[in-house]
Design a protein around this nucleic acid. Sequence first.
DNA 1: GGAGCGATGTCCT
DNA 2: GGACATCGCTCCG
Length: 209
Amino acid sequence: MSGGAKKSGFGHVVVLPRAFYDRDPRLVGPDLLGKVLIRREGRRTLAARIVEVEAYLGADDPAAHASIGKTARNAVLFGPPGFAYVYFIYGNHYCLNVSCLPDGTPGGILFRALEPLAGIPEMYKLRGIETDSDLRKLTSGPGRLAAAFGITRDRDNGKDMTTLRSDLYIADDGTLPPQALITKRIGITKAADMPLRYIVAGNRFVSGR
DNA sequence: GGAGCGATGTCCT
DNA sequence: GGACATCGCTCCG
């Protein structure tokens, strides 16, 4: 904004409130496109624009972790909205979700791709890849973006993402909502035809084709 | 540039 | 014991 430059590069940002997530994931998903995921990493700020997400529902969605009922692992999905659900997959990768719908009703949004905005050198460091390697591969894919933001289950699962007191939250920086496209979800075998993937039209950081 | 596949930890049956 | 909301490396065209 105007005046003195801020280290983060962001001026007026508004953290998305809990009510934003207290809705069906099929409404929350497209509304998250264009919003900004922010991590306070020590004195540094990591920020990236959300360009690809997927909705995961409850009992009616066989691909959703919540479809098997509440367990120790997926409990966050059954809790109140606006909390981070982080799980470990394929022995190598973490994936970040945010819970939706009121306490007792499961649902969430998986973050699949981001467009880096600030703290890019730190993201490369966290990914453990060369600083001059392809920027598109930095945060394009759920495992990649989690690594770039230093997200782990121990550190972040169950964290409130609706407050500045948290070191991981989502904000609106005033960018106009982008045009959204809806497609089938990626990388699943069950319920693979449900149109629950939301992407920013034409954005080069979107994963897949 | 695309298909094939191994690595690897955790959870649930 | 098998499945898994992935990634990056091969090998082939």
